[in-house]
Design a protein around this nucleic acid. Sequence first.
DNA 1: TTTTAATATTATGAAATTATAATGTTCATG
DNA 2: CATGAACATTATAATTTCATAATATTAAAA
Lengths: 115, 115
Amino acid sequence: MFMSYNISRKKPSLGKFASGARCLRILGHPVRLRIMTLLATKEWSVNELAVELGISQSNLSQHLTLLKDREIIVARREGHQVFYRIGEKKVLVFLGLMEELFCREPLFPGEGGEE
Amino acid sequence: MFMSYNISRKKPSLGKFASGARCLRILGHPVRLRIMTLLATKEWSVNELAVELGISQSNLSQHLTLLKDREIIVARREGHQVFYRIGEKKVLVFLGLMEELFCREPLFPGEGGEE
DNA sequence: TTTTAATATTATGAAATTATAATGTTCATG
DNA sequence: CATGAACATTATAATTTCATAATATTAAAA
């Protein structure tokens, strides 16, 4: 007997929801969401992203670290710069649904938002 | 000329991402995620949910309010109890994708998780 | 091997989120 | 219309997240 069951009678396995919830919260930040839309079409170096987003290099790096730790994005080193890209393309389908459900304006480029 | 362009040269329209990000963060809590999986199949009264989740009525009510304010769930009053249900069914497709992308164990009932 | 460019990490104060406790509201029933 | 059951709201202290500033790492170039 290894106590393989749940001791606390109620609160049955909230742990199952922790990793999904964490990923949702990580994606749930305007800057990180915007990063995802930029990475949707191509790789970006950290510096390119910092210029585009207009935030500090340090802050950007922390946002990228959060996304990278969950393997939502992937890093590739080239010389002394680092390029980031989407880890699993299907996450873009997921974000497309999010856009459809929760946003009024289009978020991704080439979705009818250009003029 | 109505200044219809963006004054701040960088930081172009992070506002577009605010509502989507907010919804992701609201869904990104273990308890609220579990509530969504419970509401997936049927309506629940607040008290039923409180018993099932094993959390205080007050805390539960606050979680429900957050979900309701964004119209992710919908309330229906019947006597002096209130029943909640999923607002837009498509959010379940969205959460199914989340599960597939970010979770190891299945979250929803009847997904191969029963024994 | 020092220097420099590019990126990452750490420390820190401010702001947002959370759970609890206490109080308020709504509505059926006597 | 007073009471109790079901739910909502508010205040608050603890925790978490966030942006900034300072410092550290990494790798190319001098």
